[in-house]
Amino acid sequence: MTYNSLFTVLSDVALVDETLSHAIAAAEAFDAHLDVLCLGVDRSQTGYYYAGASAIVLQETIARAQEESEEVETLARQRLEGTTIRWAVDAGVSQLADLGRHVSTRARFSDLVILAQPYGEGRGAELEPVTESALFEGRTPVLIAPAGARPAPRPRRILLGWNESSEALGATRAALPLLRAAESVHVVVIDPPTHGPNRSDPGGLLSQYLARHGVKAEIDVLSKTLPRVSDVLLRHVADMDADMVVMGAYGHSRFREAIFGGATRYMLEQATVPVFMAH
Score class of each variant (00 low, 15 high):
Gly148Cys: 05
Leu80Gly: 05
Gly124Cys: 12
Leu20Tyr: 05
Ile190Gly: 04
Leu268Ala: 06
Gly204Trp: 07
Ala23Met: 01
Gly52Leu: 06
Val36Ile: 15
Tyr250Phe: 15
Ala51Met: 06
His279Ile: 12
Arg139Tyr: 05
Gly120Ser: 11
Gly82Ala: 14
Leu10Asp: 03
Ala182Thr: 09
Ala271Trp: 13
Val142Phe: 00
Arg256Gly: 04
Ala116Phe: 03
Gly251Thr: 10
Arg43Val: 09
Val275Ala: 13
Leu159Ala: 01
Arg123Lys: 14
Val275Gln: 13
Arg139Asp: 08
His279Lys: 15
Thr46Ser: 10
Ala181Arg: 13
Leu37Val: 07
Glu70Tyr: 12
Ser200Ile: 09
Ile62Thr: 07
His102Tyr: 01
Leu210Tyr: 06
Ala147Gln: 15
His252Arg: 11
Thr140Asp: 09
Ala182Tyr: 10
Val103Lys: 07
Thr61Pro: 02
Gly40Thr: 02
Arg156Asp: 10
Ser207Lys: 08
Glu81Lys: 12
Arg212Lys: 10
Ala171Asn: 02
Val41Arg: 06
Arg265Val: 15
Arg235Val: 04
Asp241Pro: 08
Val130Tyr: 06
Phe30Val: 02
Val246Lys: 08
Pro197Ile: 00
Arg199Asp: 03
Gly262Leu: 09
Tyr266His: 14
Ser184Ile: 05
Gly148Trp: 06
Gln95Lys: 11
Ser5Met: 08
Ala238Val: 10
Ala116Lys: 10
Ser184Cys: 07
Asp111Leu: 04
Val237Phe: 12
Gly82Ser: 11
Glu121Pro: 05
Asp35Val: 00
Ile190Asn: 06
Glu167Ala: 15
Gly47Ile: 04
His213Asp: 10
Ile85Arg: 02
Gln208Lys: 11
Arg180Trp: 01
Leu178Ala: 07
Asp231Trp: 05
Gln59Glu: 15
Phe260Asn: 01
Leu115Trp: 01
Glu164Trp: 09
Leu34Cys: 08
Pro118Ala: 15
